[in-house]
Design a protein around this nucleic acid. Structure first.
Lengths: 104, 104
DNA sequence: TTCGATGTTCGACGAAGATCGAATGTAGGG
DNA sequence: CCCTACATTCGATCTTCGTCGAACATCGAA
């Protein structure tokens, strides 16, 4: 149960980022984090099981989009700020068209 | 051998567009078309077989990114202009970071 | 009509992905 | 130390994807 791996910024690849964003569940997660900055890793209004949610969060981490933090027994995730330097404006451009079905 | 289907603009979905762009071959195709406007459907410097190329072009058409034109025995593809109205700026934002390995 | 060039479709294949429930690990509280 | 809450991992299942070569369809030309 250690934290998810985070690739160095230099190895982040555009197609992997797009692939990570191409799933509705993951797009919702990213949209929520863009709005809130950080959330507990279970506090997304997803209809998927917790194991599936964990899977999606892992994918986002491995693609370089998210960072993962543990605090006691809870986990928190947020967008990686370096991503904005690597692909400035990209996330905003995509999120602009994402339907905001983000659960509170 | 009829032309590939083109969905009406209203049914084009963001996640499908992102998925279409998340493959390196398809991203190259879109980048080349953005630059040239139109190309013969085989005139991409792809290393994949013609059947695979045809498959990718079909995917791009079905996702709503490309339009397909026949002229005699040749085929030409180009970006769908309506896409810019549906998702203004999106393609440019993505292509800005696409490595330009586009064969002439 | 036969041929050649151009594209598309058809299996087939392995790889990757989405999903779930069950099992496991980890921390904090009694 | 045991229990519970939380999160991840594992195993299983199904689906989708990228790829190829082969087969097929279509058009224009000889």
């Amino acid at each position: 149960m250690r934290q998810h791996p985070q690739p160095p910024i230099s190895t982040i690849v555009l197609t992997d980022v797009l692939a990570a964003l191409s799933d509705p569940v993951r797009l919702d997660i990213v949209a929520a984090l863009k709005q809130d900055g950080e959330r507990g890793s279970t506090e997304f209004g997803c209809k998927v099981s917790s194991s599936t949610l964990s899977h999606h969060i892992r994918q986002l981490c491995e693609a370089g989009l998210l960072q993962h933090r543990k605090e006691g027994t809870r986990c928190f995730v947020s967008l990686r700020p370096e991503l904005e330097q690597k692909f400035p404006g990209l996330i905003d451009s995509v999120l602009r068209f994402a339907p905001k079905e983000i659960a509170a």
